[in-house]
Design a protein around this nucleic acid. Sequence first.
DNA 1: GATTAATCGAGACGGTACGTCGTGTCTTTTA
DNA 2: TAAAAGACACGACGTACCGTCTCGATTAATC
Lengths: 209, 209, 209, 209
Amino acid sequence: MSSEKGPDHSRRKERSRQAILAATRALVAEETYEKVTIEAIAARAGVGKQTIYRRWPSKSAVVFAALLALSEDADGQSVALPDTGDLEADLKLVMRATVEEFTDPAFDRLIRALNAEIANDDALAAEYREKLARPLDEAKKARLRSAQRAGQLDVDADLDLVLEVLYAPLFQRWLYRGGPLTAAYADSLVDATLRAFAPRKESGPTPPA
Amino acid sequence: MSSEKGPDHSRRKERSRQAILAATRALVAEETYEKVTIEAIAARAGVGKQTIYRRWPSKSAVVFAALLALSEDADGQSVALPDTGDLEADLKLVMRATVEEFTDPAFDRLIRALNAEIANDDALAAEYREKLARPLDEAKKARLRSAQRAGQLDVDADLDLVLEVLYAPLFQRWLYRGGPLTAAYADSLVDATLRAFAPRKESGPTPPA
Amino acid sequence: MSSEKGPDHSRRKERSRQAILAATRALVAEETYEKVTIEAIAARAGVGKQTIYRRWPSKSAVVFAALLALSEDADGQSVALPDTGDLEADLKLVMRATVEEFTDPAFDRLIRALNAEIANDDALAAEYREKLARPLDEAKKARLRSAQRAGQLDVDADLDLVLEVLYAPLFQRWLYRGGPLTAAYADSLVDATLRAFAPRKESGPTPPA
Amino acid sequence: MSSEKGPDHSRRKERSRQAILAATRALVAEETYEKVTIEAIAARAGVGKQTIYRRWPSKSAVVFAALLALSEDADGQSVALPDTGDLEADLKLVMRATVEEFTDPAFDRLIRALNAEIANDDALAAEYREKLARPLDEAKKARLRSAQRAGQLDVDADLDLVLEVLYAPLFQRWLYRGGPLTAAYADSLVDATLRAFAPRKESGPTPPA
DNA sequence: GATTAATCGAGACGGTACGTCGTGTCTTTTA
DNA sequence: TAAAAGACACGACGTACCGTCTCGATTAATC
């Protein structure tokens, strides 16, 4: 049958694809990033270099695909944030978890590698935003909208801006090693963000005088 | 009276040093970053490769020094922020200027190159924080302290955190191309930050007079 | 049926190999020997440096292989010396031809280059003796044996020694530029050698029949 | 007055000169010849590179001067060959000693290094012949002339040719490692040479009729 | 005995070539 | 017929020496 072009080689295709992505993740996690070369990936995956070039245009794309595959495995499953009704508590929980993640050395290397590629490749940056960032951001915004409805967040707030104010300081501090990443720091970011976008009291008639 | 470190036999030294940094800046500004190689820098500067390696351990360090030299030329001169007494106006002025800067393609390439190096090199990151970031941050914090004294900013605010909330979103949006960098965006960051760190009401009457 | 060593995937291989050897010969013949660099050979041959290093361990080996290939092209064909029955005449013919060869500037440069490498590399010297010198020496010794049978040369003479006495003076005079290389000089070497290894009178009757 | 150019700094001059030549000899004797660089010589001699370049035009010239100095130290002293009246015995003595010399590893390295330079540098070859080879050759020829007078050698023999026939085979065998250098070999060279240049029989009354 | 000028050691400089590594393409062999 | 294996042209890497060029610090000769 083999609907697709070739007579079902898709098994081999898929196996080599997985081998490549796994090898990439392994290399990124264990070596300094300069050692993550196409040749090293091919060798580790037991694959010809051409098989990599046939599928991806650059090392960046492979590294990105390797990370993307990770998050797609976790697909379907809840990307939803907790919603206990208490925005502050929920956000602090999430932010503390994020801080934890960035503290893991393997994760650190992986994201740092990815960052280097994304920051210097427009197309990859776009793909990153679409495939990785957006779904997460939407989940976060869903929680924020819930909070707006509950009167815990300014209904006029630009939610993209809220997310940036919440996450960007953490990201930057991590990226440039600008200070310790602690639970307390996570909390203080949540506090600041909630103060910045607290519901306007006088949303009603609001006559100041 | 030429006090200084070395007993000036530094004429040649200094000339080649400047040639290298100038060539590096030129290449970073005009070419794609992969073309910025040690060999290209040496060729452009009319200098042997060894002369570069003798002074800097890596391309990263050269690129960094090239940028650092820029800001040291501007040394001594006011790194102070405007202080008209109106914090909001002053910050918006500064943030809008920053947005402008990031919009310049040459500056974009330079900072992007630097970012790639810093994000993957601890030592360089440390040097960056000490030599480039800190002086600017101190100037900014001076302005914020002035605002605290004027009752325009929470006196208990962690000024490092204030700066992060103010700048990190802008930086991240630029780095990952997460949205347009406009004056309005700059303003909204100032607004959010000022709301987040507004003086606490229960500061009592607090009338100095 | 292409027996040969490798199972012929050697089309490209062979082409680049020939290009390298040809380029080497051209450079040796036309430039001063210091200009014969691996980089120059690669450039001239339109080949990557690695392709050279993949096959040969040193410049010496390449130069040697270049010369060796020359003599292998002339392979199979008669390496036999003339045998008119008159040893003196035959040897003078050969020695005069040798003198001619050493007088050719291109040949001079080639052999001088080779000499420099051989004289300082045991392994190369061994290969030289096996692959280049020995076959020629065997051909010469065949002629000498014929002369021994004809009663024109001492039957007890060590033929290696005879060859050395015949050729070494010519070689040394050429190598150290110790005097003119002329036909008369060639003749006088043959004369001296024949005197040194003339048949012993008291060899008895020794009538072949 | 200071006849010479500079005001007599000859003390320092001489000391550094000796240091350079000694360092060169040491390096040649102990290291592989590629390690004998101008920089290594300067470092070993505790001398600036310029001090070497001021005196000699090339490494070859330094190496040559280093060897030359050796033989000049031995200057004045007898370069004369033994003359017991028995040419064969005297020559065998000398040739066996020469064979011994070439067998010494340090000497081997030194001469091999020198050979490489001489064989590729006309000017150096000429200087070698004049300053090193000729005096030795003259001493040898003096012995041969004595033999001619004693009727032990053909009076018409070209003594340069005699020396070549005697020494060149030994030299070539050493240079190309063409066989063992033994006392027996030395003897057989003397024997062959004496046969080649034995006095002509009709050297007696020489009656033409 | 202090001054002056040549010469030295030290080593940086602009270069060239080294031998290695990774790139992305191309070719051959295997399954 | 697609894949592994790996050769290929290319180009940058970081190192070693080259031969030239400053730069003070000795020297030794002159004042």
